Structures are given as structure tokens and as C-alpha cells.
Simulated assay, not measured.
Amino acid sequence: MIAPNNKWLINALLVGLIPVLDRLLMWAATTADQVHPFAASDLVTLGLVFHLLTLEQAARMLLNTLSTLFITCYGVLYTLVILSERNTELIDVPFVLTISATLCVGSTAFGLIISQITKQRQ
């Protein structure tokens, strides 16, 4: 049987990966590189899901503050991605993709740490 903390992590990962998997499916189904296989907006969504679910799980003020900070960063990144779709010269898309990927790694690590902390309390 899967522990409740692991269920949370699995659910967060599955829900957060939906945009990434959708884009990969679109990329595989299209021709002539019309769709890029990875986009910052998908990684931002993954990070937002992790932190929104972490906010629900977190019991301490510091954890809520960290989650809120990450959510704010993801909101800014998402705005930059939307702006880059309207004006490709305005935003450095590879930089935003790098920052998004870095934040997603941090979000995943944060989620794992929260999962272990809550697991030890039970």
C-alpha cells in the first residue's frame, strides 16, 4: 500500500506533468518542428502544482512563506512566457527556460523534503 505522503507526491507529479506530456505528444504528432518539445510555461505549471499542493500540506509559517515565494516566482515567469509569445525579441526565452527548469528542480526537492518531514511526524 502507498503511504499518504507518497500518494501526495505521486498525485502532484502526475497532475503537474500533464502540460509537459501534452506538449510532447503534440511535438511527436506534428511535422516540421511546428511545436517545441519543451517550453518554460509547462515547467512553470509543474512548479506551481508542487507549491500549491505543498501549501496545503505545510503546517509551519516558514514553509508557507517559501511556497508563496516560489508561487510568486512562477507567476512572474509565466507572465514572461506569455509576453515572449507576443513579442519574441522582448524576452530571452532560453534564459526563462533555464530558470524555469531550475525552479522545478528546487520545487521537486522542496516537495520531497516536505513529504519526508510530514512522514516522520506520523
Rank of each mutant, 00 (worst) to 15 (best):
L77Q: 01
L53C: 13
I99G: 07
N64Q: 15
T79W: 08
G75L: 11
R86Y: 09
A59Q: 05
A58H: 06
F70T: 10
L90V: 01
N64H: 15
T88L: 10
I82T: 05
T79P: 07
P94K: 01
L77E: 04
T72F: 01
M61F: 09
C73I: 09
T79K: 01
M61G: 04
L62I: 10
P94E: 02
Y78S: 14
D92P: 00
E85V: 12
E56M: 15
I71Y: 03
L62S: 11
L66T: 09
Y74T: 02
A59I: 06
A58Y: 07
V96S: 01
E85I: 05
L97K: 08
L80E: 08
Q57S: 02
R86F: 14
I71W: 04
G75F: 08
D92I: 02
P94A: 02
F95M: 09
L69D: 12
A58W: 06
E56C: 11
A58G: 05
P94L: 06
L90E: 00
V76R: 04
I82C: 03
V96G: 00
T79A: 03
L55F: 13
A59T: 13
E56I: 14
N64M: 15
V96L: 01
N64D: 15
E56W: 12
Y78R: 06
L53F: 12
T65N: 12
F70A: 07
I71G: 03
R86T: 08
E85M: 10
I82D: 00
T54M: 14
T68L: 11
E85H: 12
T72Y: 00
E85Y: 13
L66C: 11
T72M: 03
R60L: 08
N64C: 13
T88D: 08
E56N: 11
V93T: 08
S67C: 04
S84P: 06
C73L: 09
L69T: 10
N87V: 03
I71C: 01
V76L: 06
N64F: 13
L63R: 13
V76H: 07
T65M: 12
T65W: 13
I82H: 05
E56T: 12
S84E: 05
L62Y: 11
Q57N: 02
L66N: 12
I91T: 02
N87I: 03
P94F: 05
V93R: 06
L90P: 01
T54G: 15
S84D: 06
E56G: 15
L63H: 11
A59G: 09
P94V: 04
G75V: 05
T54L: 15
T98A: 15
M61K: 11
F70R: 07
E89P: 04
L69H: 12
F70K: 07
I99A: 09
Q57W: 04
V81G: 13
A58F: 09
T65E: 10
T72C: 02
S67V: 05
D92F: 04
I71M: 02
I91V: 01
V81N: 12
L66V: 10
D92Y: 03
A58M: 05
L80Q: 07
T98P: 14
Y74N: 01
